[in-house]
Amino acid sequence: MKILFPLIAVIVLVLVALAGVDGAHLQTLFGIYIPYAALAVFLVGIVLRVIGWARSPVPFRIPTTCGQQKTLPWIKADNLESPHNTLGVIGRMALEVFFFRSLFRNLKADYDENRTGNELTYGSAKWLWAAGLAFHWSFLFIFLRHLRFFSEPIFFFVPFLETMDGLLQIGVPRLFMTDLVILAAVTFLFARRIVSPQVRYISLPADFFPLFLILAIALSGIFMRYITKVDIVSVKAFTMSLVSFNPTLPKGIGSVFYVHIFLVSTLFAYFPFSKLVHMAGVFLSPTRNLANNSRAKRHINPWNPDVKVHTYAEYEDEFRDVMKAAGLPLEKE
C-alpha cells in the first residue's frame, strides 16, 4: 500500500500529461501555465518555509560534538568535528552539505547472541552514503546542465560540465554519466527501502513518491535525449521564450516532452510541502551550525523565562537550627 499508492500516483501523473496533450490538446496548460505556477509555488513555498524556521529562535547552543573541544593549548582541538569558531562551523557545514560527513560514519550493527564476549559488532556500511552522494551530485549536475536551455549565451560552466559528464565519449548524442548514475542511485535507494526490514518498516508513502517521481523524470529525459532524439533547437527556443516571459509553444515536439515538463513541475510544487525541504533545513540545524563555544561566549535566549527559585535565604530559614547545630556558617544567627 505505501509503495503501491505513490507508484500509482506517478503513473497517473504521466497519464494526465499524455491525455492532456495528446487527447485534449492542452499544450498551453501543460507547457506554459503549469510550469510557471509550479515555479511560483516552489519559490514562495520554500521562502515561506525558511522564514517559518528562522522565525523560531535558537534558545540554547546545542551542537553535537563529534571531536575534542578547545580547552588547554596543548590539547589538540578538532575544529571540524567540534568547531570553536565560525571558520570551523563553515568547514563542518561544508563537509556535511557537500560530502554528507555524518552519514559517512554510518555503521551496521551485527548481533549474535552466541558469540562469546562481544555479541555486538559494528561493520562498515558506506553504501547508503555512497548512493546518497551519487544521487545528489548527479542530480545537481543534471540540473546545472539543463541551464543550457535557460541561458543565452549559455552559462560558462555548462559546456565544462557537459564535457566532464560526457568524458566516456560513448554514442551520439554523447552519453552523460550522470544519467546512468542517477538511475542506479535511485534504484538502490528504492531497493534499500524494500529489502532492509528496518527501513521498510519506517518508510512512508512520502518516501516512495519522490523516488518514483524522480525516476520517471530521469527516464523521460533519457528517452528524449537518446531514443526519440528530441529537436533541441525547438526546445531551446521554447524554454528561452519562457525565460523571457514571452512564451511560445514549440512545434513538432512529442508528448514525452510535456510529460517530462509536467513531472518536473510536480516535483517543484511538491518540494516545499515534503521531506525534500531537507535541502534547506540542513543549513539551519542547530546541532551542526553552531560553534561549541558556549562556555567561552554567552549565548542569548530571547525568551529566557523567569522562574521561581528556592533562594539561599529561604533555605537557611528552613534549616537554620540543624545548620547551627552542625556548626555551619550562617547569614543570620
Binding site: 524556521w53 529562535p57 555524518s102 550493527a109 528496518q198 519506517i202 542547530p286
Partner: peptide, 29 residues
C-alpha cells in the same frame, strides 16, 4: 514550542527516514 525552539521545527520537517539512526540506539539494539 514550535515557536520557541527552531530545533523542534527543523527536526519535525527535515527527516527523510533514511534509517541511518535505526541501529545506533542502545535501546533498539
Amino acid at each position: 514550542r514550535l515557536k520557541k525552539f527552531r530545533s523542534l521545527k527543523i527536526f519535525m520537517d527535515t527527516c527523510v527516514r533514511c534509517g541511518a539512526c535505526a541501529d545506533k540506539c542502545h535501546f533498539f539494539l
